[in-house]
């Protein structure tokens, strides 16, 4: 396994790991968005999707654990690389310049860290229900073959959450940062893994930017729709 240590001990190898974990996170972000977009299908769709996820039980925890590990590796390695990068230029330029690097590329660490903070808030908000316990503890009763069961009313939580302009604004801003992060990150994955070349470069760039827009618009559509009243509580 010496070779693996050598691979992951090198700058190029670690970049590859950042790229691969990033790719996994992109997959998660897409899946997460698709699942949540069911909010447009009404309370039942969203709540039963949530209940189904919960019913996975141990598997859910494995998935969460995996996701956490990927996240930690992605962020941890990226921060380590960033620290090395800072050390590689101990004295800054008195007059810094820039020629062709994009904003997305230059702000990767910053956007990444902001997204990290947002994720923590997002978990506190919707997953753990710490910020607004009054929204998070709501349940609804549904009929099953074995009789009525109470399940978590995710739909209520989401709508109540996004009715607050500050919260919605925060989510939309965070999605903009995530999109910016991805606009460079997704292209970067191909380059870092050596999958980029002259022929593929332009399509890859378009794919990355397109995907970033889809994530931004898709995820932002939910708070916007709630604020605009397009998505509302049943019976309201």
């Amino acid at each position: 396994m010496n070779w693996l240590a050598r691979l992951l001990g090198s700058s190029v190898g670690r970049k590859m790991l950042v790229a691969l974990t990033g790719l996994a996170l992109v997959g998660f972000v897409i899946a997460h968005m698709l699942g949540n977009l069911q909010v447009f299908l009404g309370p039942d769709a969203l709540n039963s999707y949530a209940a189904k996820l919960k019913s996975l039980g141990a598997l859910l925890w494995v998935m969460r654990g995996g996701l956490l590990a990927v996240f930690v590796v992605h962020v941890g390695l990226a921060l380590k690389l960033a620290a090395e990068n800072k050390a590689a230029r101990p004295a800054a330029y008195a007059r810094p310049g820039r020629v062709q690097s994009t904003l997305g590329a230059r702000s990767m660490v910053l956007t990444g860290l902001m997204v990290l903070l947002f994720v923590l808030y997002h978990l506190a908000h919707f997953t753990f229900g710490w910020t607004h316990p009054e929204h998070a503890t709501a349940t609804e009763a549904v009929q099953t073959l074995t009789g009525p069961v109470n399940r978590h009313d995710v739909y209520y939580m989401v709508v109540m959450g996004f009715r607050q302009p500050l919260v919605s604004g925060l989510y939309i801003a965070a999605m903009a940062l995530l999109a910016l992060h991805m606009s460079h990150g997704v292209q970067s994955v191909f380059q870092s893994l050596g999958l980029n070349n002259r022929k593929y470069e332009d399509p890859i760039r378009k794919l990355a930017i397109g995907l970033a827009w889809v994530i931004f618009l898709g995820n932002s559509s939910m708070p916007v729709a709630v604020m605009a009243g397009l998505v509302d509580l049943p019976g309201a």
Binding site: V12, K15, L81, N85, Q100, H184, L195, N197
Partner: peptide, 23 residues
């Protein structure tokens, strides 16, 4: 430092060496 695919290198290279060689 580590490459973060900025391609500033290519932009200032007097011989215009392409970042594709990095890939």
């Amino acid at each position: 430092g580590n490459c973060r695919n900025y391609y500033e290198c290519e932009a200032v290279c007097p011989k215009e060496i392409s970042h594709h060689f990095i890939g």
